[in-house]
């Protein structure tokens, strides 16, 4: 772990130093291992999903029908993709006419929840509530073409909110998270934290 970590860190700093090219080569190989492991993890996830939903079908519990649909869809897509390729008419039909519209529908339905959620949530009862409400209205109008039709104030104010207070806040969060990641990584590299191996 410590050796791999050192190689990956040094790789960032060595640049085009020919004498240390082996470090760069080792880092490249290590990264390709990462891709292979990730691909296996996806396969493992698929097997786990099959096991979990097969159990649900065999037990005939309340969600057995949905589990059956999931398994059937998964098998059909895998067979079509592996046997005939992802450019085959069958795979393309399933992707374009079932997967894409179904996914888009799920995503688009969020709009309806946003309307009711905004109506319920943006109820100003104190100063903070009013500040949130006013900011939300400015950004909502500033980010749609209708905002500049009503007044040039909305796009200008919306851009200012995005680039000044928001960016300042985001930077603070990012820097804080980065420092946290560095300290955790150093603990792992030095063997002080072995929780990722399941140890305490």
């Amino acid at each position: 772990m410590t050796v791999i970590a050192l190689v990956m860190i040094l790789d960032f700093f060595i640049g085009d130093n020919a004498a240390l090219a082996w470090i760069g080569d080792t880092a490249v190989v290590t990264r390709s291992w990462g891709i292979v492991i990730s691909a296996f993890a996806m396969g493992l996830g698929a097997i786990n999903l099959l096991r979990r939903h097969s159990r649900s079908v065999l037990k005939r519990d309340e969600n057995a029908f949905y589990s059956f649909l999931l398994i059937a869809s998964m098998i059909v897509m895998i067979v079509l993709g592996v046997a005939f390729g992802t450019e085959s008419p069958g795979y393309d039909f399933m992707f374009s006419n079932i997967l894409s519209p179904a996914s888009s529908t799920m995503y688009a339905s969020i709009a309806f929840y946003i309307v009711t959620a905004a109506y319920r949530s943006f109820s100003a009862r104190n100063l903070e509530g009013w500040l949130l409400l006013i900011t939300a209205v400015i950004v909502m109008l500033g980010k749609a073409p209708i905002g500049s039709v009503i007044s040039d104030f909305f796009p200008v104010a919306s851009t200012w909110i995005e680039s000044v207070p928001n960016t300042a806040g985001m930077r603070a969060i990012m820097m804080g998270a980065a420092l946290g990641v560095i300290s955790s990584a150093v603990k792992m590299f030095l063997g002080l934290d072995k929780s990722y191996l399941g140890q305490r």
């Binding site: 905004a118 109506y119 109820s123 939300a136 209205v137 109008l141 749609a144 209708i146 905002g147």
Partner: peptide, 23 residues
């Protein structure tokens, strides 16, 4: 699609304002 998005934003803002006036 931009007209639709503009009017949807306007609707949300109108609903929020109505709710707060009522409050």
């Amino acid at each position: 699609a931009m007209d639709a998005q503009s009017l949807a934003h306007l609707l949300i803002v109108a609903l929020i304002i109505l709710r707060n006036i009522a409050n």
